[in-house]
Computed example of a mutant assay.
Amino acid sequence: MVRFLNTEAAKGWEELCRSAASNTWEAWVVLTERPASSENIDRQHRLKGEYAHHTIDGATFAQWQYEVTSGGRIWYCADSDEMTVWIIRAGTGHPKLTD
Rank of each mutant, 00 (worst) to 15 (best):
W25V: 05
K96H: 13
K11W: 15
T32S: 11
R46V: 15
E33G: 11
S37M: 04
D57S: 15
A90T: 07
E67G: 07
S22Y: 05
L97T: 12
M83Y: 09
W28K: 08
L47I: 06
T24V: 02
P35I: 01
V30N: 03
G71N: 08
D42V: 05
A62K: 13
P35A: 13
H45L: 11
G49Y: 13
C17Y: 04
T69G: 08
H94Q: 05
R34E: 10
L31D: 03
S22E: 07
Y66Q: 04
T98I: 15
G91W: 05
L47T: 02
N6C: 08
V68E: 00
W28L: 10
E8K: 15
R73I: 01
Q44F: 14
D79S: 12
Y76A: 02
M1R: 05
Q65S: 06
R43K: 13
H54G: 08
W28R: 08
G93S: 14
A20F: 11
K96S: 14
N6E: 12
G71Y: 12
V85T: 04
V85G: 00
Q44G: 02
E50Y: 04
D99N: 09
K48W: 05
E8W: 07
I56H: 03
I88G: 02
L16E: 00
A27C: 09
S38F: 09
S80A: 10
T7M: 07
D42Y: 15
I88A: 03
S22L: 14
Q65G: 03
C17G: 08
W13T: 02
W28C: 08
E14S: 06
T69Q: 07
G91L: 02
H53W: 08
L5H: 09
Q65C: 15
A10R: 14
A20N: 09
P35H: 11
K11H: 12
E26S: 13
L47P: 00
A20R: 10
I74D: 00
P95A: 07
E39W: 12
